[in-house]
Design a binder for these strands. Structure first.
Length: 805
DNA sequence: AGCACGCCGACT
DNA sequence: GTCGGCGTGCTC
């Protein structure tokens, strides 16, 4: 037996498989997808078995495999085939794709432990050296038995092999406190402690009064007793208490209510969608459906019933959501409907938990997978349906290697399994909507909300006309009045202040003028270090003006107000209101996100103020006002998708109100009230927005009319990086194609954050019509630049990038 | 990635 | 003459 192995070295020269001999004793243990250790050169490296053959074309003596790493496989034939396709399609190393497919536990350091399920049979088969233990080191067993024999024991369920992570750094731990003293000893200590040591006495009293409690989290104790770390430490010094670490497990289903729910009767529109798609499920057709449904139109119910149908036919179902911790309600609904056989995968799980979920999928225990982007690689067999909810979300595109888009992977798997792919959104990506337009996808419209409520009215406030008070220059009097009104009525308010980190643009306070690039139809970005306004799409730049180029007003300045400033203003104007601020700063700590949401949903706070993360599908029945503090922030990002994103964001956040029985209202403050995005958002008119935006993309030669690829050259030497970037441009430059409007090369531009970790970045953006030619040219470039990698210059390729700087 | 091979400049 | 610089090529 010969196996073809892909080595774990991401380099062009070894981006292929190498043949290895398999000793007889190993043949039944090694399977397609096995991880193996192989001798490679004079090294020992990890690799994946991607093919099994009887013969080799290699002219030389094959080396045998050094060892087998797992007796389980984590990749099936389908995923191995997929990795081959993706590596070529994404122009990245196959090993990178294979590694991205695996649960991350296998990348950590771990001990392999053999669990003995049947001690009697086990000792019968392995002999007398073994003492009566329930688990032994795998290594010990391997020293005495052949891999084939171990594999056989496993198959007979006499043993199983488990992994224990050695490197615990990826696991969250919390510090726990317990006491080793009994009640008398504690009382004794209390007596000896001075009456003035209130805090130390408090700790003793706590343990005296809570004998039943074995241990308590340090942080909890500190807040509960209002004691400081110093007090805790002195208690430790006096040996009253000891601390220990406990691993924090975040069971995704822990907080989910297990109430069972049954299928709801579908509205005619929903029924129609269900009927259409279920035909594809039944007939095993790899069709793609785009469900364009307004917020509240009941897309989830359609998903659930379709998944149910696939399950009834003995197939499995894959549901992708943008990020589970942001969409707990979706998980809850899936669990309530199906109760068992669900694997939930997301970034909040510990690596061991993820691995466990993965195992359940491999073993066929879980037929339903709900998860974020990487779940698209879940090793499900016999998939009957794939659903991507909120398909327009950018989180479906991985921003580092392998830079795949879950939608593309889903398309491939859909073809492989002859299963329909469902894309759902209230505001589909232009790419998907355009594909539906030309008939590649089936388009399904859902125009009615399940609760029969109309979409909330949207009030546009022209901030250029608002006379602003010094203290509250982010809030218009109208918005202030409406917030006051909701506070009086004990209803809740959601406020969006979408300030994204870096980009500051130049805005005239008098006329609302925003400096645009004369060539690119994209706003200029202020660069502080040389005081210039620059375009990120071409080389255009000009000095920062002192007066408005349009109306000559001196009231022109860079713009960008953060949530923190708004929160201060709110507290000044509404001292009686409790404001929950939710942004990257306040949710960086794990669990903080949920905590803030709980605070708001339970009614402890009146106003939820946050960045775009608050726009995600959250249902709060008591919210009757949604305010967008500045719609222009996102609109003026230097990105051709800025309009699309803003429209999606405004539509999404508008959907946060009117979810319950109370009617909702939306207020959007803007300096550009006439902007088409604002106007279409006002009427919730996706279809006309789509048509308008398509025209604009057509005129400016952007997707979906052109393919885009971003080449990034990076090096510690600025000169080397820029030199190569210019060389690449020269290589790709083709006046013939440019004249025929088949290819545009933009750049090289310096990355907006020009230096990260001492590396300089230069970008080259390609816009083109003919994918095959460019792909071939880029292959050549990758081959030629491989040797540069040893000189510290790197080239990265990102097809259809979501962000550009 | 890591290592051997090989071809040119400054040394005991 | 030789030691060692690192550019080039190979790893089943």
């Amino acid at each position: 037996m010969i196996v073809k192995v892909v080595i774990d070295i991401p380099a062009k020269q070894v981006n292929r498989s190498f043949d290895y001999a398999v000793p007889k004793d190993w043949e039944s243990a090694i399977k397609l997808g096995s991880r193996v250790q192989v001798p490679f050169g004079n090294m020992k490296r990890t690799g994946f078995v991607v093919d099994i053959a009887d013969e080799t074309e290699f002219n030389g003596k094959l080396k045998p495999i050094h060892s087998i790493m797992d007796y389980d496989v984590f990749l099936n034939e389908e995923l191995i085939e997929l990795s081959d396709y993706l590596a070529e399609y994404l122009q990245c190393f196959r090993i990178s794709v294979l590694q991205a497919m695996l649960p991350s536990l296998l990348k950590a350091k771990y001990d392999a432990i053999v669990q003995i399920h049947d001690p009697v049979l086990f000792s019968e088969k392995v002999g007398s050296w073994y003492q009566n233990e329930t688990s032994i080191d795998r290594k010990e067993l391997e020293d005495r038995m052949s891999p084939n024999a171990i594999s056989q024991l496993k198959k007979e369920n006499i043993i199983s092999i488990e992994y224990q992570v050695i490197n615990q750094t990826t696991q969250k731990t919390k510090t726990m406190i317990k006491t080793n003293l009994n009640k008398d000893q504690l009382m004794n200590a209390l007596e000896k402690t001075s009456q003035r040591s209130f805090k130390q006495r408090a700790i003793l009293e706590y343990f005296i009064n809570n004998q039943a409690i074995e241990s308590i989290e340090k942080n909890t104790l500190m807040t509960e007793l209002e004691v400081s770390n110093a007090t805790i430490n002195s208690a430790i010094d006096k040996e009253w208490i000891t601390t220990f670490k406990e691993v924090v497990y975040r069971d995704p289903l822990k907080d989910v209510s297990f109430q069972t729910s049954s299928s709801k009767t579908l509205l005619p529109e929903q029924q129609n969608a269900y009927d259409l798609i279920s035909q594809s499920v039944d007939n095993k057709q790899a069709d793609t459906y785009l469900i364009e449904g307004v917020t509240g139109s009941g897309k989830t119910e359609i998903y659930l019933q379709l998944m149910d149908r696939a399950l009834q036919q003995g197939k499995s179902a894959l549901l992708l959501v943008p990020e589970i911790s942001l969409t707990p309600q979706m998980v809850e609904r899936v669990v309530s409907r199906f109760q068992t056989g669900i694997a939930v995968l997301h970034s909040g799980l510990s690596i061991t938990e993820k691995y466990d979920e993965w195992q359940r999928i491999i073993k066929g225990e879980a037929k339903i997978v709900v998860g974020a982007r990487s779940s698209i690689f879940a090793p499900l067999e016999n998939i009957g349906i794939i659903i991507i909810d909120e398909e327009h979300e950018t989180t479906y595109k991985q921003s580092d290697n392998p830079r795949y888009h879950a939608r593309d992977v889903a398309r491939w798997r859909s073809d492989y399994h002859d299963a329909p792919l469902i894309l759902g959104s209230a505001t589909p990506s232009l790419e998907s909507r355009a594909r539906a337009q030309v008939g590649n996808y089936h388009l399904i419209h859902l125009e009615n909300r399940v609760n029969q409520m109309p979409m909330p009215p949207v009030d546009i406030i022209d901030m250029t006309q608002v006379e602003l008070r010094e203290t509250a220059n982010e809030l218009s009097p109208e918005l202030i009045e409406k917030i006051q009104d909701r506070l009086d009525k004990r209803e809740q308010v959601v406020l969006l202040q979408n300030r994204r980190g870096y980009a500051s643009y130049l805005l005239c306070r008098e006329c609302g003028f925003i400096m645009q690039c004369p060539r690119c139809d994209i706003s200029l970005t202020y660069h502080k270090f040389d005081n210039q306004m620059k375009c990120h799409y071409c080389d255009y730049h000009e000095p920062l003006p002192t007066q408005c180029p349009s109306c000559q007003s001196p009231h022109i300045r860079t713009h960008g107000i953060g949530t923190q400033k708004v929160a201060e203003t709110l507290e000044e104007i509404f001292p009686e209101a409790k404001v929950t601020r939710m942004d990257n700063d306040t949710t960086r700590r794990k669990g903080q996100h949920q905590k803030l949401l709980d605070e708001f949903s339970s009614g402890q706070s009146n106003i939820l103020l946050g960045t775009q993360m608050i726009a995600k599908s959250l249902d709060f029945e008591n919210v009757t006002l949604v305010g967008v503090i500045n719609a222009d922030t996102a609109l003026n990002l230097p990105d051709f998708r800025a309009s699309e994103r803003t429209f999606q964001l405004l539509t999404q956040v508008s959907g946060r109100t009117g979810r319950g029985r109370l009617a909702g209202e939306v207020v959007i403050q803007t300096y550009n009230p006439e902007h088409y995005v604002i106007q279409f958002a006002k009427t919730h008119d996706y279809e006309n927005f789509f048509r308008f935006e398509m025209k604009r993309r057509h005129l400016t030669n952007y997707p979906p009319y052109y393919f885009t690829t971003l080449l990034t050259v990076s090096s510690k030497h600025q000169g080397k990086a820029s030199q190569l970037a210019y060389d690449l441009k020269a290589q790709l430059y083709n006046p013939e194609l440019e004249r025929k409007e088949q290819l545009y090369i933009i750049g090289p531009n310096r990355n907006n954050i020009s230096k990260i970790n001492n590396y300089y970045y230069f970008n080259l953006l390609l816009k083109y019509k003919d994918k095959t030619t460019i792909q071939r040219q880029l292959d050549d470039i990758l081959n030629n630049t491989q040797q540069k990698a040893t000189q510290g210059v790197y080239v990265n390729i990102d097809h259809e990038p979501q962000y550009f700087s």
